[in-house]
Structures are given as C-alpha cells and as structure tokens.
C-alpha cells in the first residue's frame, strides 16, 4: 500500500483538478496559473538534474524550451491547422488528440538532440566555462530562429490554438490541463527513476569529484551526455506545452531572462532536491501572480525575498534534502520511486 499511496494521491489530485476545470469550479485564470505551475515544475526539476544533481552550471535552459516549443508547434500546425506558409492540414482534425502527445515528444527529442551541443563541450570543460557555453547556445538558438523566416522570424509563430480547438471539438474536456499534468507526472517519474538508477549514482559522483568518479570507473562522458540530453529533452516538453497553452511563440520569450527564471527556481528550491524544485516552482509561480497588484514594487520584493533567502538559508528551501528527509514520519505513508 505504502508503495502506491503517493501515486494514487497524485492521480486523485490531478483528476480533481481536471474535473474542477471541466465543471467550471476554477475560472480560466486559476486554470492558467495551474498550467504555468506545471510547466515551471518541469523546467525547474529538469534543470535541477544538471545544476543540482550533476553540479554543472547550465544557464541556457530556455534554449531547449525554445527548440521544443517551435518543433512541436510546427508539427502540430503542419498536421492539423491551416497556415500561411505550411499550407493546409495534412490530417483530419479528429486525430488531433492522438497525435498531440507525439508532437510534444518529437519536440522533446529534438530539444534533446540540441542538448548534445552543450553535452559535448562539457566533456572537457566545467564550471564557469561551461556556463558561458550554455549562454552561447541560448543566443545561438534564438538568433537562429529569428533568421528563419519560414517560422515567422522575430514576428513569432502562431496557429497552435487551432490545434487545441481541434482537440476540444473531438471531446470537450480541458485537454491542455490533462497534457500538462501528464507531462509533469512523466517528468517527475522519469527524473526520480533516473536519479535513483546506476546512472544517477554516477551523476552524484560527478558532482562530488569528477576525477575521483572517473577513477572509480564511472564513464563520465557517457553520463554527462545522457544527463544533458534528458534535461534538455524535458525542457523541450515544457516548451511544447508552453507554446500550446499560449498559442503563440516568439523567440524573445525564451531569452536569457527565461533561463534566469529557471535558475532562480532551482536555487530557491535547493540544489539536488526534486521535491525542493517542485515546491519552489509552485511557490515562484504563485508569488509572481499573488504580487501582481503591487505592480512595479513586485520586482523589488521578489529579488529581495531571494536575497533574504540566500542570506539566511543559502542552500535554498529544501537544501539537498527531499521532503521525506525533513518529515521522516511521512515515510510511514509513502515511498517515492
């Protein structure tokens, strides 16, 4: 029972959210906050894998999000929507709910391949130098897309709303909510599995001491490659969901500021703590929304909170602990694998 309790609780929670959205218990604004919360959870927990668990410093996470967003948008628009450049839809709109997850995964896979751009240099460099490479990748991706007129260049790319409508026409349920919750669950599941696997031990070893890990027969290059690809692939999934929630993508939405937001969420939650990055993503999204009435002062308060947090709790909310380490009694009720 203990083994499944968390999964069941999570599934019930998701079902409640979807049912509430369907019945109109939460208005669209609350729904959209929940959607962004899910996307932010994927972003922060996937970046946490590289920055927290592996101890590298990647600050170009938005680049992979951008790739995922564009690739999955192009796939769905090509298949299901009328577009100026890409022409008439290739498939009947009834198939949209089946192909949508495939398109999101394709976006994730391409983002993972772009992740190799960071992974390969990471064989030889680390620390600040790798950080610069990740920023460079962020800029490369943005300028690349800005110069691709076929996807709108700096004007951005749209048409994804039509795909979402096509899904609603088949069955009228809150599709984006379902996909985002599924994406979040998938991310957390795969990350937890990865961290507790042999590869995950290798990742932690690299974080502690790369040379020692190498001596202890850890294939550091292979692990770095897989870890970077996993992290960027998950960011790509987040990007795909983001693009379809908003219905419009623009290269400048994924600039260095977005990457910084991801970093903030990771450091707020605590390095290497999965539950910490989930918690911080939820809190950060809520904080952004709750402080909206303050207008300009909001961007004084949020950095101030960060400064205070770093002053009095430099390891972040959770440190490198999980929720079950802080509340050992919770272990009586669930195990998380």
């Amino acid at each position: 029972m203990r083994k499944y309790s968390l999964n069941i609780a999570f599934a019930v929670g998701c079902l409640l959210i979807v049912a509430g959205a369907q019945a109109g218990l939460f208005n669209l604004y609350v729904q959209s906050v929940i959607l962004f919360m899910g996307i932010n959870i994927i972003l922060s927990s996937s970046l946490n894998l590289v920055n927290g668990n592996m101890g590298e410093f990647s600050c170009g996470h938005a680049a992979f999000m951008c790739v995922g967003a564009y690739v999955s948008s192009i796939v769905t628009v090509l298949l299901f929507a009328q577009n100026k450049i890409l022409g008439a839809p290739l498939l009947p709109p009834d198939l949209a709910p089946f192909f949508f997850p495939i398109a999101i995964i394709v976006g994730g896979v391409v983002a993972a391949l772009v992740g190799i751009l960071v992974a390969v240099p990471s064989f030889k460099t680390r620390g600040d130098y790798l950080a610069i490479i990740t920023i460079a990748v962020n800029y490369m991706v943005i300028s690349g897309i800005e110069n691709l007129d076929i996807v709108g260049g700096p004007r951005g790319f749209m048409g994804m709303k039509q795909v979402v409508y096509a899904m609603s026409d088949v069955v009228d349920i809150p599709w984006m909510m379902i996909w985002t919750l599924l994406g979040t669950a998938f991310t957390l599941w795969i990350l937890r599995r990865y961290i507790s696997s042999t590869y995950g031990k290798g990742v932690n070893a690299i974080c502690q001491d790369e040379i020692a890990a190498e001596i202890m027969s850890v294939n550091t290059n292979k692990i770095k490659l897989v870890t970077f690809m996993l992290s960027s692939g998950l960011a790509g999934i987040a990007g795909g969901l983001f693009a379809h929630v908003i219905g419009y993508v623009n290269p400048q939405s994924f600039n260095i500021l977005k990457s910084t937001e991801c970093l903030v969420m990771v450091y707020l939650g605590g390095m290497g703590s999965l539950s910490g990055s989930v918690l911080s993503a939820v809190l950060f999204t809520l904080m952004l929304e709750a402080l909206r009435p303050l207008q300009i002062i909001k961007w004084v308060i949020i950095p101030l909170i960060l400064v205070l947090l770093m002053q009095f709790r430099p390891e972040g909310i959770m440190g490198n602990k999980e929720l079950s380490d802080v509340f050992p009694k919770l272990r009586r009720y669930f195990t998380f694998k």
Partner: peptide, 20 residues
C-alpha cells in the same frame, strides 16, 4: 495589470482581468 513585457504574463494578466 503589469505584463512585465512578457508573452505568458500578458496572457495571465488578460485572464486575470477577464475572470477575477
């Protein structure tokens, strides 16, 4: 409502104005 000059924030701000 401040949209912070960001696309996703503009969507949220619009929804907040409409719904809340």
């Amino acid at each position: 409502e401040d949209n912070e000059s960001k696309a996703e924030s503009a969507v949220n701000a619009a929804l907040k104005l409409i719904e809340q």
